[in-house]
C-alpha cells in the first residue's frame, strides 16, 4: 500500500514536471523542471527495486548532465530566447492529434506485449545476492562487449564534444581562404 502511495507520488511529480519541461518558457525553469523529472524517475527506479540504476540516475543525470545544461545556458544568452515565442504553435496544433494517436498506439502495443511476455527467472538470485550484485555479474559477463563499446562511445563523445566546442575550431571560412 505504501508502495502505491510512493509510486503515485513520484509518477505524479514526474508527469507534472515533464509538462513543465515542455511548456515552461524560461530555459532556467525548464532545467529545474527537468531536474525534478530526473529525481522522481530515480524514485520510480527505487520502487521498482533497481537501486543501482536509481543511484546512477541521480549521480550522472541529476547532477552531471544537468550541470552541463546549466553551463551551456550560461554560454548562450537565454534572455534573448525568452523574448521570442518559445513554441511553434502551428506545429504544436498539427502534432497534438498525432501525439495522442501515438499514445493510443503505444498503449495498445504494450498491452499486447504484456499479455505475451514471459515471467521472471532471476527472482531467487536477486533475493539471494541482492540486485546490485546480479546486475554487476550479468553486466560483466553477458553484456561485456556492449559495456566496452559504450565506454568507447563515451570516449569518442567526449573527444568529439571537446573538438566541437573548442574555440580554435576550424570553420569553412578558414578553409576557403
Amino acid at each position: 500500500m505504501i508502495q502505491w502511495l510512493v509510486f503515485f507520488l513520484f509518477s505524479g511529480i514526474a508527469v507534472l514536471s515533464a509538462l513543465g519541461v515542455v511548456f515552461l518558457p524560461n530555459p532556467i525553469y525548464v532545467i529545474l523542471a527537468l531536474l525534478s523529472v530526473l529525481v522522481s524517475v530515480a524514485g520510480l527506479f527505487f520502487i521498482a527495486g533497481a537501486e543501482l540504476v536509481g543511484a546512477i540516475q541521480l549521480l550522472i543525470y541529476a547532477v552531471a548532465v544537468t550541470v552541463f545544461y546549466v553551463f551551456v545556458l550560461t554560454a548562450v544568452p537565454w534572455e534573448k530566447a525568452i523574448k521570442k515565442d518559445p513554441f511553434y504553435r502551428v506545429e504544436g496544433l498539427i502534432s497534438f492529434p498525432l501525439v495522442l494517436a501515438l499514445y493510443v498506439e503505444m498503449v495498445l502495443v504494450f498491452l499486447i506485449g504484456v499479455s505475451v511476455s514471459p515471467k521472471g527467472q532471476f527472482r531467487e538470485l536477486i533475493t539471494k545476492f541482492g540486485n546490485t550484485e546480479v546486475v554487476g555479474a550479468i553486466l560483466f559477463s553477458k553484456y561485456f562487449l556492449a559495456f566496452e563499446l559504450v565506454s568507447l562511445v563515451l570516449l569518442i563523445g567526449m573527444i568529439g564534444a571537446v573538438i566541437i566546442g573548442r574555440k580554435e575550431a576550424q570553420t569553412y571560412e578558414d578553409h576557403s581562404s
Partner: peptide
C-alpha cells in the same frame, strides 16, 4: 508513455535548441 509523448511533443514545439 506519458513521459515519452511529452518528450516527443516538446521536441516538436520547442523553439530553443537547448530545450
Amino acid at each position: 508513455i506519458v513521459l515519452f509523448g511529452l518528450g516527443v511533443f516538446g521536441m516538436i514545439v520547442r523553439r530553443n535548441l537547448v530545450t
